[in-house]
Amino acid sequence: MKKLDELKAMNPADRKRAIGDLLMNNAMFIIIAITILYIWIRVPSFLSVTSIINIMNLTAAKLPIALGVGGCIILAGTDISAGRQVGLAACIAAGLQLTVNKLFPGLAVQPIPLALLAVIVVGAVIGLVNGFCMAQFKVHPFIVTLSTQLIVYGFILMFLQFGTNGGQTLSGMSEGYRDFISGTLFKVGTAKVPMYVLYSIIITAVVWVIWNKTAFGKNMFAVGSNEDAANVSGVNVKKTIILVFMMAGILYAITGFIDAARIASVNATTGLNYEADAIAACVIGGISFVGGIGKVSGAIIGVLLLQVIFVGLNFLSVDANLLYIVKGLIILVACCIDMRKYLVRK
C-alpha cells in the first residue's frame, strides 16, 4: 500500500519508470506465470493433484544441489562440478547397495548409514579440494570447478569399470535402500509422496539455520559481498570459502544418494548437467552472481518454478531437444534481469 501511495505521489515520467522497473525486476516471475497459465489452458490436467504432487517431489529431489550451488554463488563464485559430484555420489551409493554386486564381487549390501557416510565424506573431500584451490591460490571458481568436474567424471568412469561391471549401468539396489528413499511418506489420493521429500525438507531447514543463524552463514554473505572488508573485520576468509564448498559437496552427495534410489538405475550420465538446472534455479530465485545476496526461500522458489516449466513443457509434448534451448534461455534471461537490478544507475 505504501508503494502505491509513493507511486501516486510521483510525476508521470517517474511513475512510468518506477512501474517499468517493477515489471522488469519481476519479469522472470511474470514470464513464468504466463507460461503456467498458458500450459494450464492448453492441458488442464497439468494442474491436477497428481501432477502437482509430482512437481513437488521433483522439487524436493533437486533442492539440495540447488542449495549447495547457491552457497557458491553467494560467495560470488559458481560450481560447475556439482552435476558430476552428484553422479559420483550416486555411483558410490548404488555400488554399496547392489543386491548382485559386479563392482565388488561378493560384497554384501552395506548398511544404509554407512553408504550415506561414504558419499558425504567423498563429497566433503571434493568440496575441500575446490575450496582450498580457491581460498589458497585465488584461482577463479570457474576454472577450479571446471577442472574438478573433469577429474570427478574420470573417477566415475573408472569406478564403473571396477570388478566385472565393465562400465554398465548399475541397477538392482537393495529393497531397504529403495524403501528408505522412495518409500511412501503419505498419499494424497492416489499420488504418492515419497520419503525423500521429508529428508529434503529437513536438509533445507538445516541449510536455512546455517545461512541465517550461525556466524559461518553471516561470514559467507560477508565474504561474498566484500572479501577484503571481511578480511579486515576478523572473518577467516579462507576457512569460510573452504567450508562453503565442503557444505556444497555434502549437499551434492546427498542429492546423489537420493537420486540413485529414486531413479533406481545409475550410469556415467547420472547427474549430467544438473548444475545447469541448479544455477538456473538459484538465479531465478534471486541468488545473485553479484555476490553476497540470496535466500533459502529464493532457492526453493527457483527450483519449484523451474520444475513447473519442465513438467509443463512435457505436458505440451515439447521436443526433448528443445528443452535444452529453453533451459539455456532461462539462465540467460534470468541473469540479465538480475544484473540489471544491481547495476549502479548512472
Binding site: 553471516k218 560477508a222 577484503d228 572488508a229 553479484v290 545476496i293
Partner: peptide, 16 residues
C-alpha cells in the same frame, strides 16, 4: 574497498 559490505544491511554490517 575494505570497509563496507555494500549489498548487506546496516544490521549485518554492524554485527559482523
Amino acid at each position: 574497498a575494505t570497509g563496507i559490505f555494500g549489498v548487506r544491511s546496516i544490521l549485518e554490517n554492524t554485527v559482523i
